[in-house]
Design a protein around this nucleic acid. Sequence first.
DNA 1: GACTGGTGAGTTTTT
DNA 2: CTCACCAGTC
Length: 789
Amino acid sequence: MQDILQGLNEQQYEAATHINGPLMIIAGAGSGKTKVLTTRIAYLMSQGVDAFNILALTFTNKAAAEMKERIEKMLGNNEARNLYIGTFHSVFARILRGEAHRLGYPNSFTIYDSEDSKSVIKSVVKDLELDEKHYKPSTVLGRISQAKNSLIGPLQYAEDYYIQQEDMRANRPAIAKIYDSYAKRCFKNGAMDFDDLLVKMYELMNTFPEVLHKFQHKFKYVLIDEYQDTNAVQYQITKLLAAAHENICVVGDDAQSIYSFRGATIENILQFQRDYDDVKVVKLEQNYRSTKSILNVANAVINNNKGQIPKSLWTENDEGEKIYLVRTMTDNDEGKFVASTIQEQKLRNHFSNSDFSILYRTNAQSRAFEENLRRSGIPYKIYGGLSFYQRKEIKDFIAYLRVIGNVRDEEALKRIINYPIRGIGKTTMEKLQTIANESNITLWEVLERAAEFGARGATSEAISKFVTMMRYFQSLLKDKNAFEVANEVGKHTGLVKELFSDKTAEGLARYENVQELLNAIKEWVDQQETLTQIDEDGILIDNVSTEETKNAQSLGVYLQQITLLTDADKDDGKGDMVKLMTIHAAKGLEFPVVFVGGLEESIFPSGMSINTREELEEERRLFYVAVTRAKKKLWISYANTRYRFGNLVQNDPSRFLEEMPKELIDRKNAGSNTTSFGLNNSNGFGFKNNSAIEAERRYGAPPSLKQRATSLPSQPPAVQKIIGHQPDNNFQPSDTSNLKEGDQVEHLKFGFGTVTKMEGAIHNRIATVLFKTNGEKKIMLNYAKLRIL
DNA sequence: GACTGGTGAGTTTTT
DNA sequence: CTCACCAGTC
């Protein structure tokens, strides 16, 4: 026990050992939060608390895995594997797997990912005969998700005056109706979406006192990481769970709240002290991670936000180097700069690849980095983005498994019914679908009784063949494990064979992916075998009943966990690789060397989040998170121009750059020695008249046309030619809400042109215009900088 | 019912 | 640029 608590500072010690009663830890970035949490758990166990009585909830699988691993190391045994540590979603899914029947769901319910959800919404919108252009699945799902996270059901949604006003204003009054149908459809399909995992867990606890009682007493100690990111449902559930013992410990940092788009509210952390009596509050303010320079930059930036919980983060670490600010001509150059800097740093400072991390605001930005790392032969791994399980060929294969596990899963069924092509086409499906909806039976049932509903000839035959095959697979469930079933599916459906005969590069990759899926399932099954050999007292059992093992290895269990899996979880930690991820994904992690890319207006801060102070402050917190990931060295970069939808776009340098204290910034690679970042100063940052010359000096002469096709287009993009337009000092953007094609306009930076194309007014917030300057170049622009002539 | 080529629309952030 | 969707053809 002495060992466990060793090396904690006074506050950390207090936080780790105050195990009875409510505790709130306000933990600054890099203050050893994970260390405290893991120590706390290890300490609990050393005090005789059973691992089965401890529940720790995190926001990412990665954070959970890390905690588990650290605890295991601390305790020196594998008792930690019996802890309930996981994301809200995965822990609740696990619980619901045993209890869902109470809510009318099959215990083998399917979990819908966002793609499935959108697909359901799409068909609901179609059935309700609404305008599919106007009721876009992503928009509608966003509204529904928001409602669910605030515990607002379909009925309440329809009756809520404020919500209805909002929907009316957006001219989408039918969302309430869609929400209702969507919920019913999911229920009929025996499926829960991501939000349902939380909502249904709440319903379960709230409706069945005996269930609540059971879990209140099972989880005598509750810990919640990143409490500032909890939303209303999560808040309510944890409140219920902790009500009996009040041994609840929450850890958070209001400065790192970056999930409000998911319904997270800082209120929860502010409310905590009012929810329980005698809340112990511990502040962790000493940073052990970063250099003084890095921390000071972070502090200076976050100070621009109003209303943070007062806290002063300090460090005893070295001053460190200044923060490097880098400007490049294009997004590709940004990638190139990062790749070469990594090479250089490795040689100079003996860093290994895994010491580096590249962070960005949007997943789309990863490509430029990826390409250049590959070109430089630097091994890298991208976290997030499309997970392995979201790839088309994998989802197709899994769709078979899903239907086998749950025939009510209509989304999966629709996916596979004619894949591989077996002659059950669109028209047939539409007919069957209508029958299913009208007679309120499942699509599967309609298929089973297809002949009875009027299927004839070849179609009827194809359907009954399909049904017979699926029934055969289902018959395997009884005594075959997930891998054996999957293997059979691969063989009998011809899926593997079809991919194998596709000799194109993509076909080969798809084939390999499916192979990898089968391997993964095999691995999982084997792993389950060892897991089930430990009983509830944590003692290894020699003779596990085959029944139990089989159960744990079943297809249903497998399916439920993979939907919640992200790519990061496949990471075995092995392999020396540079890590690429969004800033959101990087929360809670730290790296010796960090590159943050794309510090440009409309990217970071995102163009979607610049309209209210709240949105902007969240972007700023995100920047704060990015900066505080770095231990030793930090590069921040932005590009003058980048490609977006195949078009060249120009963005101003991010406003956040201005907020960093100048004396802590090394700007020798920022291209300009002006002291101002002045966004409107055409002589200032990034838009100098001589930037083409400057670029040539740094990157060499532009490559010939032929070369350009194969090598980096590091030549300054054509847009440069027209840069340098000197607007009238009184340039006032016009009200461009009526802007139309053919209008003559003046742009703040580019000068005069004609509007050739209007693009979307997406979300009514930021819109871009494609226009021709001097009859020559196409550029996409922001409305706000245009004057109609 | 299956296949093809043209067209338009889309990119925050995560489970 | 890339993907989903549509109309038109076999």
